[in-house]
Write a protein that binds this DNA or RNA. Structure first.
Length: 161
DNA sequence: GCCAACGTTGGC
DNA sequence: GCCAACGTTGGC
């Protein structure tokens, strides 16, 4: 089994939204980055575990755990001229953009903020999330990093400053 | 709102 | 293939 991190802006789609979805499952549409697409199309497998990360909010951080719930499928938002993610170059007979379904698993006992993750840089030094200039919305997570990040939920929350 | 860091586009 | 211009991401 592999481990991943997927970012979402909670103003657009939050972990709470995922929890409320029918079957607590959502197609991860709208991704328009080839690296992220390739991971969904070629590498993600049903049952893989996902850190659900809230970006562009206060505070940014990991809020819950999800899992991959489908194999790769065409992203139909690319075919809809009225959709914000419409891509006229994506041909329904040869779709350019692919997605997987993501299913809610559980909330973390408490959110683990980016700030807190960075405070553990000595153990998480090569975690992609805190690498310089990282902008990928989907990234692989090493098991050791997964265990450290998820393990923080059992530690007391750090003092706010 | 600012801006660094990327990715994409398109002229050449 | 190079690279300047432009658009986006996302923390701060």
């Amino acid at each position: 089994m592999a481990y991943w991190l997927m970012k979402s802006e909670p103003d657009s789609f939050s972990f709470s939204d995922l929890e409320k979805r029918p079957k607590q499952t959502e197609p991860w549409d709208g991704v328009r980055n080839y690296q992220a697409r390739n991971m969904m199309r070629d590498e993600m497998k049903v049952g893989d575990q996902v850190l659900f990360y809230h970006s562009n909010c206060k505070p940014p951080g990991v809020v819950g755990i999800a899992k991959v719930a489908s194999g790769p499928r065409p992203d139909h938002t690319a075919f809809d001229p009225d959709d914000h993610h419409f891509d006229p170059k994506s041909d329904p007979d040869n779709p350019r953009w692919m997605l997987v379904d993501v299913k809610f698993v559980r909330w973390l006992k408490r959110p683990i903020s980016l700030h807190e993750i960075k405070a553990h840089a000595d153990e998480l030094g090569d975690f992609r999330l805190i690498a310089r200039g990282n902008r990928l919305s989907i990234m692989p997570v090493e098991k050791s990093h997964w265990d450290i990040v998820v393990g923080l939920e059992d530690q007391p929350a750090p003092e706010q400053n």
